[in-house]
Amino acid sequence: MLRFIVRRLLQAVLALFVLSVLLFAWLRSLPGGVVSALLGERGTPAAAAELRAQLGLDDPIFVQYWRFLERALRGDFGISNGVYRGEPAWDVFVQRLPATIELSIVAMVIALTLAIPLGYIAARRKGGWLDTGSVVFSLIGVAVPVFFLAYVLKYIFAVQLGWLPPSGRASVGINATHITNMYMLDGLMTREWDAAWDAFKHLILPAVALSSIPFAIIFRITRAAVIDVMEEDYVRTARAKGLTARTIRGRHIMRNALIPVVTIVGLQIGALLAGAVLTEKVFAYQGIGQALAIGFERRDYPVLQVLIMMAALIYIVVNLLVDIAYAVIDPRVRTK
């Protein structure tokens, strides 16, 4: 077990190292080079020369990479020139991360609570209308561009019906105390129920749009896994023993069928981060996704740099944890 964790940890460290090299190369290959990328629109020739000297761009490449790494570890990624002009890029990330975590969690909860029961029911009635219907629905779900779905939801429920707010994270005039910067959680913690409710209403549409990505995949994996497991001998044995349907479902079918689902949930975190770029842009939801969207639009490279690196870091760490959790659940993984 320990050996598995150590090996997996070393892999993650290696991935991070290569990632930092790639990011360094990416920053140097940007249009106009690193100087104009960091200076943005403020770039006068004098400022460029000063920055060149300051960054030591005439030093050997290894020295430059080392300096880049050192700065990155200190959280010094330069100053934003598009998202929040003049603010350190690192602060943009720190301020906006809670919003995206909150959105992703709500989206994942929606996807899981719908996809797992639906996958189970569809598998039990394989070939029935509910099964066929939900399989077709999940295939269409994959085919719809997520930002288009977001616009459709916004058009129907915010613009036409006016049931939910069309954009942002909180209504104007809501006076809320912020502790974690996850607005709904803050409202619940401080018992400002109106603020929590308001934050929740702002979350629904973007979260539903975002949940369409993991929903389709979790549904199909659950369905396929349940179909496989139901044919296993131990399920037949359990039935022959006269166990109740409930015990068979909980202890024999779902416990085994959920193993592949756990892995997929980890892998979907990455898709969720990329999907957040698109949905947060549609709903002007102030998370790291929207910052990335604005960053790409205005070529705010200092912000892009920190956000891409942190997104990859989060993804690597989450999958590391998933793999370890997987090894705990399923002993066969360790010895592979």
Binding site: A15, L30, P31, G270, A271, V277, F296, L304, A311
Partner: peptide, 20 residues
């Protein structure tokens, strides 16, 4: 493995942003 450790659509965005 390293290529797969970056969320793929995010990588597409980053690659596309490299071109002026």
């Amino acid at each position: 493995d390293v290529m797969l450790s970056i969320p793929s659509l995010l990588m597409a965005f980053s690659l596309a942003a490299m071109f002026a």
